[in-house]
């Protein structure tokens, strides 16, 4: 039997519940990313936040983006970050201080930025349709390989360059004469 539009016995819509749950997960895990002591756990929390965001993309009617989020962020970037953590973290790694001395200034700045964004958003009247429009994957494909084919190709060049750059930078012994120290 299909479940209703709303929570049983209330006027609260399932969508809203889902949104709130996902938002709490997203913000919570994000906070953990920036506050936890152990950097491995930070990385894991980051995966959680990426996953929550993928859920929110689904709520926004964009399954392709959600899939891409999972594939790229969780599947590639997170793994990359975890590898980097493992490469740099040594046994005697200084875990004594997680935060900079300027952390409190950063916190104040972050709060102020949040306030400014929220204030701006809430005081602005958007010409919104009021409902989420479903985004079909086929539409995206049409547009990406039609109108946006040039940026698409540019991105592919960028990715190639990034791969080459990453390999060059991370090499143990930079080839003599090719490095640019200036």
């Amino acid at each position: 039997m299909p479940i209703g539009q709303t929570l049983p016995f209330t006027a609260v819509r399932w969508d809203d519940v889902l949104f709130v749950v996902l938002a709490i997960m997203l913000l919570g895990s994000a906070l953990l990313v920036v506050t936890m002591r152990d950097i491995i756990r930070c990385g894991l929390a980051m995966i959680a936040s990426f996953a929550s965001l993928a859920g929110i993309y689904v709520l926004l009617g964009n399954p392709l983006l959600a899939a891409t989020q999972v594939l790229v962020y969780i599947g590639a970037i997170s793994i990359l970050v975890l590898f980097a953590i493992m490469l740099t973290e040594t046994k005697n790694a200084p875990t004594r201080l997680v935060f900079q001395t300027q952390a409190w200034v950063g916190a104040v700045a972050a709060v102020v930025i949040a306030a400014i964004i929220a204030g701006t958003v809430l005081t602005t009247t958007w010409p919104s349709t009021g409902a989420v429009a479903w985004t079909a994957t086929s539409d995206i494909a049409t547009m990406l390989f039609g109108q946006y084919v040039l940026p698409f190709e540019a991105v592919s060049v960028l990715l190639t360059a990034a791969v080459v750059g990453g390999v060059l930078l991370a090499r143990r012994e930079p080839p003599a004469g090719k490095e640019d120290r200036s």
Partner: peptide, 20 residues
């Protein structure tokens, strides 16, 4: 780097505040 980044953030705030 982070001192400079803080400068960017504070500058952003000032500019946004002024704009607002």
């Amino acid at each position: 780097v982070q001192n400079y980044a803080l400068g960017i953030a504070l500058g952003l705030i000032v500019m946004a505040a002024g704009y607002l």
